[in-house]
Design a protein around this nucleic acid. Structure first.
Lengths: 217, 217
DNA sequence: GTGGCTATTTATAACAC
DNA sequence: TGTGTTATAAATAGCCA
């Protein structure tokens, strides 16, 4: 018998509280189940007792994970906000950094020069010249190494048939530029011209040079 | 009047179902609230109607996020894994792209040339020369514009005091080109292992797990 | 989609085993 | 701890606004 009006107030007696928790929990779950069936709704109840024991109810034909996923999608209270927003922010910054890097590369391909002022143009000009020289040097060195290697090889093979200069003149056809990267995106740059290098006696101009940058998104 | 025994079976009448949903939902929430107060428990109810409308109850002094976090920790249901992994993958790709972009810029500054083969060096050399020319042209054009502007200004101001050549002759001493966007990002993952409770199937941890992403500079 | 109303059905507090 | 009983409080279906 429910003797006397029930006070909605914390039950101080530990035992009574525990008993009430158990009974009312069952009542709540029963109601939830009825609601599910009667009204064709999906209900998730997650509860922790004062002693931190977990009990849950979930409507048949669904899962707690589903409900929570849906909850997150539908509600603006994104439950996972702390992590989510931090990761979103990180992503935003990475994309921004990425964008800047792409711009810089474009400028080094001679594009988007409108955005630069005179000082920047001057610096970029200088940079291009410097790097051009560095790369040329490096190329010579690389060529030299290859020639050395080839020379030694040929000597070892006792095969004096080929001349060194001829060997060197054919290098353009030796190596194929390998394009790495699957998801080709962003920027692609094809070049197809001959170039004359006034101070460059060793250079053997190729039929076509192709430079391709595949930048992943 | 509760006329007749209630059948726990889907209410086919759309209107009645809606009304019952509304009323029973309130009843359920009321019960949940009472349980919260009487038994000092924490309850989260998330429900979706048959028309996919979201309704939720959450005990005072807590949040749905708290409950779900705790639920995830205690139960084996990894509620966030899908989102988490998706974002991790995105971040990983962005960082990788970033790294490649940086490498390309470095190569255009004459660094990291060791990684390039002879063909790549040749292409890069050509690129540098081309861009150098383009930038130089652009610079001249820009300078020309400035000189024109200055000339007109001075003519208008009737101030022949300054020579045009002197005006333009000092540009090289101005600021160098700054490469920006060279910040490095890194990701840290902290997780406190929760306690193991051998005798409890489900129990709340005393310390919650924390996942933190640090954006490093 | 609420907010009464009322006859009934349900839930449950207190007690007992 | 759990389970049952019972007097009473609450919930609520159907109806009207």
């Amino acid at each position: 018998m429910a003797r006397g009006k029930i006070q909605i107030k914390r039950i101080e007696n530990q035992t009574n509280r525990q008993v009430t928790y158990s009974k009312r929990r069952n009542g709540l779950f029963k109601k939830a189940h009825e609601l599910t069936v009667l009204c064709d709704a999906r209900v998730s109840i997650i509860m922790f007792s004062s002693s931190n024991k977990l009990h849950e109810f979930i409507s048949p034909n669904t899962t707690t994970k589903e409900i929570i996923d849906l909850y997150q999608t539908v509600s603006d209270v994104d439950v996972w906000s702390a992590h989510y927003e931090r990761m979103q922010e990180t992503k935003r910054k990475l994309l921004e950094t990425n964008r800047k890097l792409r711009t810089q590369i474009k400028q080094r391909l001679g594009e988007c020069l409108d955005e630069l002022d005179i000082q920047e143009l001057r610096s970029l000009e200088e940079e291009m010249e410097n790097t051009f020289k560095l790369v040329r040097e490096r190329k010579f060195k690389s060529l030299g190494n290859q020639i050395e290697t080839t020379k030694k090889k040929e000597l070892r093979a006792e095969d004096p048939h080929y001349g060194l200069v001829d060997k060197g003149g054919d290098y353009d056809s030796v190596l194929g530029y390998q394009i790495e990267g699957s998801r080709a995106y962003a920027l692609r740059y094809h070049q197809n011209h001959h170039h004359h290098y006034p101070n460059h006696t060793l250079h053997a101009p190729s039929a076509s040079d192709i430079i391709t940058f595949h930048l992943l998104e």
